[in-house]
Amino acid sequence: MKFIANGSKPTRHGFGEALVILGEKNPNVVVLGADITGSVMTSYFRDKFPERFFSIGIAEQNATTIAVGMALSGKVPFFSSYSAFAAFRNSDQLRISVCYNNVNVKICGGHSGITVGPDGATHQSLEEVSFLRALPNLTLVVPCDYNEARKATIAIGEMVGPAFIRFGRSPLPIFTDESTPFTIGKCEIFNEGKDVAIIANGIMVWQALLAADELEKRKGIKARVINCHTIKPIDEETIVKAAMECGAIVTAEEHQVTGGLSGAVAEVLAKNYPAPIEFVGMKDTFGGSGEPEELMVKFGLTWREIYASALVAIERRDKGFIGLRKIKDVAEYSENL
């Protein structure tokens, strides 16, 4: 395998460090906090540039529109809170004041997904990608590890226009490095293969790499692993090419499959090159308390589900219709794992 885990850190650390780099490069970069600055790591920026950090308190709607006012005055404001609040409490502000205005505001949603862990369902945002993806003008990025979170944060800080970056709380394997390419709107192929393509983002990219490894070891199946870190604008070319060359697709995300990366990929394929597609992600359910690893197993967000889904997708490609899809089917394929 090309990628090897080299320690682990949460993506939020990469985000927090990148803000300091951006702050050094550009005096117009400002950061707005909503009380949880130590959790989302904007505290690094606050300590380095106190005159450019503004504590807005627990008022996400206000923070979002204050950021708009600052952007309209030439600043590059970053507002960060948990995704549960930075994408939903302020959704009207995001729609009209940020996206319709098409202003240079960056919203940074931390503690996303079930890997928040013990805080439970209220804090595990699993739907924001579906909402944000429908907003015109917005760029939406979900980085896969600490290093990519750094690069993605710097990239959205250097582009002009509204952007949302989604990151998480818990440590993740670090498997990309400085030399791994990252361009907004461009998928990266992390593992070559032509038997099946796994399109993943966020924490599920590492799981996809593990699944590809197991597919090759156990079945001799070569899976192409595609890191689709930018959900909007989506890289149609790479996705369609994968469908044409592999003929079977699996998507994997720490998010509801409804409208998430799965929905986005399904739209691209339906429009261009329909191919069997299996979804690994949250299946219309809320999360709950527990350790991240326990929750990933409970909700089917591990390499095992990706592995099994790849086998289902390949069978559908080879046999055509094999019956209505049920979650049970995937379990049958993965019983020996």
Partner: peptide
Amino acid sequence: IETSSGSLGQGISIAVGMAMSDRLLD
């Protein structure tokens, strides 16, 4: 026109952001 507006309660907060930008930064 300085900003879109129409969903009530948002424009005043944008105005606060503009006022902050000048008073506290520029």
